[in-house]
Every structure is written in structure tokens, then in C-alpha cells.
């Protein structure tokens, strides 16, 4: 018997905001804190907490610096973060497929 795809979900990644952070960072390669906050419509404090969780899990790398006199925080995806994102999306797709199969069995 194969394991249910829900068992493979990573609690760190399987969260709407953190999945959003990983998705944006994957797509952009490198993203600034302000863009993430705007795209995910979060407060700075809330976003900071989610980033800390992802950084602790070594899924992202946070780089602080300056651009002129303006402080900037850039986020990049680590190889582990890239793998975690791919696995999460694969699990989600598998879940959707199984739910649709179950739905078509019950309706037929």
C-alpha cells in the first residue's frame, strides 16, 4: 500500500504564506523584502516571522545590505528550498488528483 500524499507534506512548507515566499523566490531567483511584503500583503513583522522559520529550516538565504543609504534585505532560495518547493507542489498535485478520482468514483 502506498503512503497517502498528505503524509509527505512538510509542515514548514505546507503553509500558504511560506509556500508563497518559496514560489516567489523560486520564480525571481532573488527577491527583496519589500516586494515579498507587497505581493503577499503582509505586515513586515508577520513576513519576518515566516522568513525566520524558512531560514532556520535552511530553505532560504537572507542577505542584508545597503543600496545607497537605503537598507535592503534580499532573499534567495537554497537548493534545499528548491527541492522542498518541488516536493510540496508534487504532493499537492497528487492530492488534487486523488480527490478528483474519488469524486468521479462516487458520482458514477
Amino acid at each position: 500500500m502506498t503512503a497517502h500524499p498528505a503524509n509527505g507534506l512538510d509542515d514548514v512548507v505546507h503553509q500558504r504564506v511560506r509556500l508563497g515566499i518559496l514560489t516567489i523566490t523560486h520564480e525571481a531567483r532573488r527577491v527583496e523584502f519589500g516586494f515579498l511584503r507587497s505581493a503577499l500583503q503582509l505586515t513586515a513583522g508577520n513576513l519576518g516571522q515566516h522568513l525566520a522559520v524558512l531560514e532556520k529550516a535552511e530553505l532560504i538565504h537572507i542577505e542584508k545590505g545597503y543600496e545607497g543609504k537605503r537598507p535592503r534585505t534580499w532573499i534567495t532560495l537554497t537548493p534545499a528550498g528548491n527541492t522542498a518547493l518541488r516536493q510540496e507542489i508534487a504532493h499537492l498535485k497528487e492530492l488534487v488528483r486523488q480527490v478528483e478520482q474519488a469524486h468521479s468514483r462516487t458520482s458514477s
Binding site: 498528505a6 509556500l19 508563497g20 520564480e27 505581493a39
Partner: peptide, 19 residues
């Protein structure tokens, strides 16, 4: 589960498009 897989996947697609 806080969001359904369908909603999460749709959100992933939307964010990727936005980027």
C-alpha cells in the same frame, strides 16, 4: 489543512505570474 490543495496550487500559479 489551512487551505485546500486546489487553492494553494492556484495561489502558486498566481504568484508566479505576478513575478
Amino acid at each position: 489543512v489551512p487551505d485546500s490543495p486546489e487553492h494553494l496550487l492556484a495561489a502558486v500559479r498566481d504568484l508566479a505570474r505576478e513575478v
